[in-house]
């Protein structure tokens, strides 16, 4: 039977989405403010974008963040996919309970704990803090999210497809690369993107594990915000929001097209 939206349903949806999007919208609008005061509208201007690009420290931080995010998300994707395979395809192996626990725990664990424990570990093994420690920390944190995303896909995976490939003579490894991997690829890409944004976004874990020359964008933004609001931050945020929105929309379109294509092929 068709479900019908009541007035109450519509109102709660409208208010809910207004609550979610209004703050972001205001942030974007005020990035084009010519006034130095963030909350007083002084006319349209793009001067803060210019100031942003001249801000050497911020640009450097952005570059570091991007490198860390790319590297850690790539490693996390490989590790997370392996973990997802282990959880769905290996049945009961020794220490499985501990393994599941270690996969789920970092997702809910307060970041301050994860950050502190990794820092103390790096100190104990005498690893200099900086680019590499943040990368390792982010890999550990984000691989769990990749695992969950890929695992969800593997659980709905039709095993008879693999059985068909093996029945037609493909050995297990080739079956994996020619049948399984292409089919779970969208979830792996989604997992990578998730890991990438989480790494871009992280302040707490990075703050604990940062060192000289490895100031990430969130750390830089955070220290500026603590000193007070600045339209420059609004401009930086707007660019980030724009990039993310663009990325999400193109990813959605891409996946929709591949769904359509696979549907067409199925007919």
């Amino acid at each position: 039977m068709t479900r019908r939206l009541s007035i109450f349903n519509v109102t709660s949806l409208v208010l809910g989405f207004a609550f979610l999007y209004l703050p972001i919208l205001l942030l974007v609008v005020y990035s084009f403010n010519s006034s130095r005061l963030v909350t007083v509208w002084g006319g349209f201007s793009t001067q803060w974008y210019g100031a942003l690009f001249r801000n050497q420290a911020l640009m450097e931080a952005a570059w570091v963040t991007l490198r860390i995010a790319l590297l850690s998300a790539s490693i996390a994707t490989v590790l997370g996919t392996l973990a997802a395979l282990a959880l769905t395809r290996y049945g009961r192996f020794p220490g499985r309970t501990l393994f599941t626990g270690m996969v789920y725990a970092p997702m809910v664990m307060p970041e301050v704990i994860t950050g502190l424990s990794l820092l103390l570990f790096f100190v104990a093994i005498d690893l200099d803090r900086g680019f590499w420690t943040i990368t390792l920390a982010h890999t550990t944190l984000t691989m769990c999210f990749v695992t969950v995303v890929v695992q969800a896909r593997l659980m709905t995976f039709d095993r008879s497809l693999e059985e068909a490939a093996m029945d037609l003579g493909a050995p297990p490894l080739r079956t994996f690369f020619s049948v399984t991997l292409p089919l779970i690829a969208p979830s792996i890409v989604a997992g990578f993107l998730l890991a990438f944004t989480l790494s871009l976004d992280d302040l707490v874990v990075a703050s604990f594990n940062t060192g000289p020359g490895a100031t990430t964008l969130p750390i830089r933004i955070y220290s500026q915000v603590r000193l007070g609001l600045s339209p420059e931050i609004n401009a930086a945020s707007t660019i980030l929001i724009g990039l993310v929105t663009l990325g999400v929309i193109s990813a959605t379109l891409l996946s929709k097209r591949s769904v359509l294509r696979s549907r067409r092929n199925a007919h």
Binding site: P23, I24, T197, L203, Y222, V225, L229, S237, L240, V248
Partner: peptide, 16 residues
């Protein structure tokens, strides 16, 4: 979608 945009930025927006 908002979840994909930076946590820090979203909190920052509320200060103003």
């Amino acid at each position: 979608l908002p979840f994909w945009t930076s946590f820090l930025i979203r909190i920052y927006a509320w200060i103003a």
